[in-house]
Simulated assay, not measured.
Amino acid sequence: MTELRAVPPEELETWYTKELCTTFPPCEQKPLSAIRELMAQGRYELLGLYDGPLLQGYATLWSGPECPGYVLLDYLGVTAARRNGGLGGRMLGLLRERCGSGTVLIVEAEDPDSGGPPEERPLRERRLAFYRRHGCTPVYLSFNCSLLCQVFVLGEAPADLAALGKAHRAIYGPSRRDVVIDPPPGAIPPQPYWMER
């Protein structure tokens, strides 16, 4: 029986190096020190989907006291051995239950026209279809980690998209200059701070 629970703090570094850094491109790999700092502030949570002691998937949730009722799904992944078996959708369902009806779960996924490698376009399109299939509603575009992203909410879109965008941006905080909500057409996404030269 699988369950979603907190990943023990002593497993954070192993998760970071063996899962996050092998699955996500460098522009999306938030430094481990930043994750630790956010966790120490009570703003970041690493959840694992476990079958007994075995980690099968993971989700990180990022929130902030300045925007109650909004949570950002920062990373969602399934371990390599368990991919394409329905666990990603199961995790979204468990996250929906965990957050409850009073919380808006914000999801970002790379847009097909993100500017990434053309050969990865089918993968980007599959990711977007996955989120739609599992009850996510597209709400607007954003820049994040030097990419153009489609932003979703899990469930129905809230009536006040301006408040959603404001909360979304506030979760990242003022130092993340690479995050732009609803960027103007033709704008170029900035690099995340960990890739600036």
Score class of each variant (00 low, 15 high):
Thr2Gln: 14
Glu3Leu: 08
Ala6Cys: 14
Ala6Met: 12
Val7Trp: 06
Glu13Thr: 13
Trp15Asn: 08
Tyr16Val: 06
Lys18Cys: 14
Lys18Tyr: 13
Phe24Lys: 00
Phe24Pro: 03
Pro26Ser: 12
Cys27Leu: 12
Glu28Ile: 13
Gln29Val: 05
Gln29Ala: 06
Pro31Val: 06
Pro31Trp: 12
Leu32Phe: 00
Ser33Thr: 15
Ser33Lys: 15
Leu38Arg: 10
Leu38Gln: 14
Gln41Asn: 10
Gly42Gln: 03
Arg43Lys: 10
Arg43His: 06
Leu46Trp: 10
Gly48Val: 04
Leu49Arg: 00
Gly52Glu: 14
Gly52Tyr: 07
Leu55Lys: 13
Tyr58Thr: 13
Thr60Gln: 07
Thr60Pro: 08
Thr60Leu: 07
Leu61Gly: 04
Ser63Gln: 13
Gly64Tyr: 03
Gly64Met: 05
Pro65Glu: 11
Gly69Asp: 01
Leu72Ala: 02
Asp74Cys: 01
Leu76Pro: 05
Gly77Tyr: 04
Val78Met: 09
Ala80Pro: 07
Arg83Ile: 06
Arg83Tyr: 11
Gly85Ile: 09
Leu87Asn: 01
Arg90Cys: 08
Leu92Met: 14
Leu92Glu: 13
Leu94Pro: 10
Arg96Ile: 04
Arg98Gly: 12
Ser101Gly: 15
Gly102Thr: 13
Gly102Ile: 09
Ile106Thr: 01
Val107Ala: 00
Ala109Val: 13
Glu110His: 02
Glu110Ser: 01
Asp111Pro: 11
Pro112Asp: 09
Gly115Ala: 08
Gly116Ser: 10
Glu120Ser: 12
Pro122Ala: 06
Pro122Met: 01
Glu125Trp: 03
Glu125Thr: 02
Arg127Phe: 01
Ala129Pro: 09
Tyr131Trp: 00
Arg133Val: 08
Arg133Cys: 09
Thr137Leu: 00
Ser142Val: 01
Phe143Pro: 04
Phe143Cys: 04
Asn144Gln: 11
Cys145Asn: 14
Cys145Tyr: 15
Leu147Lys: 14
Leu147Pro: 11
Leu147Arg: 14
Leu148Lys: 12
Leu148Glu: 09
Gly155Phe: 04
Gly155Trp: 00
Ala157Pro: 05
Ala157Ile: 11
Ala157His: 07
Ala159Gly: 15
Ala159Asp: 09
Ala162Tyr: 08
Ala162Val: 15
Gly165Asn: 00
Ala167Ser: 03
Gly173Met: 03
Pro174Phe: 02
Ser175Val: 14
Arg177Ser: 15
Asp178Ser: 05
Val180Gln: 03
Ile181Arg: 03
Pro184Glu: 13
Pro185Ser: 05
Gly186Lys: 06
Gly186Met: 00
Ala187His: 09
Gln191Glu: 13
Pro192Leu: 05
Pro192Val: 07
Tyr193Pro: 13
Met195Ala: 09
